[in-house]
């Protein structure tokens, strides 16, 4: 199956509308047909125009609904200054007129209103290094909705978002405890740049990266023809084990290379445990 056919026929995306929030001068640098999935003109949203306010407020609501319990919701100005103006926000939504009551209630939207209700979003900004992007916001309400199965929505939003902005290299930072590691790891083994990060006010943060090849994006989205070789874990780190994070950081600073090869696994006393493998003697063209 061709990549375009795979994406266009993906069950999770049926009935969903892709959207992009970006200024007109940023948008000209993007691919608005990722794997043949075209973003309708009305869902190309310019955050500098007054008509965008209602939809942008719903994105804020999506952010606080998903992040709420983890305590990282964003103020309106942070969205403006960090997501919309320098970069892009890509995601999927459903028109209010077609939305089930469950969704209308959640977002307090009237069934007659002409507005897209967002179910997921992925936000990223470019880096000084050309064609490299830094991801900073991922949320999906997919697993909370009962009216349909949205499995894979978070991962699809990130992968297609990276295709839209035409990223070649990707970097991200996340807490050792984050469930989102389950999404990130789908893009292949993740190269570790920091394992203990005092520059982030949450020092139990790791910085990771991967190359955004079509291979990585399609494998992440579950295309059956694309997969990764994943090294075997050599050690495990639990989200509170600062000593292990610092030891690993010292090794990275001394020039050794590590990756997170695969998804976190369950742990009897912690949220999960994260596998680590050395990259020393292995050939990973993907990284």
């Amino acid at each position: 199956m061709s990549p375009d056919e795979y994406i266009q026929q993906h069950l999770t995306l049926q009935g969903l509308e892709p959207f992009l929030v970006a200024t007109s001068y940023n948008r000209v640098n993007f691919n608005l047909n990722p794997y043949g999935l075209s973003i309708k003109q009305e869902y190309l949203i310019d955050p500098t125009h007054s008509a965008s306010e209602r939809f942008c407020d719903l994105l804020l609501a999506l952010d606080s609904t998903t992040f709420g319990p983890e305590g990282m919701p964003m103020d309106k100005w942070v969205f403006y200054d960090i997501c919309y103006m320098p970069g892009a926000v890509f995601g999927f939504g459903i028109q209010a007129q077609q939305a089930p009551q469950e969704l209308l209630d959640l977002f307090k939207v009237d069934a007659q209103e002409n507005v897209l209700i967002p179910l997921s979003m992925y936000g990223a900004i470019p880096m000084t290094q050309r064609d490299a992007w830094m991801g900073h916001n991922l949320c999906s309400i997919g697993s909370k909705l009962k009216f349909r199965n949205f499995k894979g929505l978070g991962t699809l939003s990130k992968a297609l978002g990276l295709k839209v902005v035409q990223a070649k290299e990707f970097y991200g930072a996340t807490q050792w405890s984050s469930v989102a590691l389950n999404v990130h790891i789908k893009f292949g083994p993740l190269k570790l740049y920091t394992s203990y990060t005092p520059a982030h006010s949450e020092s139990h943060t790791l910085t990771y990266g991967f190359s955004c090849t079509d291979h990585a994006l399609l494998a992440a989205m579950g295309h059956p023809d694309y997969d990764f070789e994943r090294p075997a874990p050599e050690q495990w780190i639990t989200p509170n084990d600062q000593e292990a994070m610092i030891t690993l950081q010292d090794q990275i600073e001394a020039g050794e290379h590590f990756c997170i090869p695969s998804a976190p696994q369950s742990h009897p006393d912690h949220k999960h445990q994260v596998p680590i493998a050395s990259l020393a003697s292995k050939l990973f063209t993907h990284l």
């Binding site: 960090i82 900004i125 880096m127 900073h136 930072a173 949450e202």
Partner: peptide, 18 residues
């Protein structure tokens, strides 16, 4: 009172530029 989420200066400052 413009609370800056904790991750901002790393994700939007240090990582993309400096």
């Amino acid at each position: 009172e413009m609370t800056m989420p904790k991750w901002v200066s790393y994700d939007a400052g240090i990582m993309p530029s400096g």
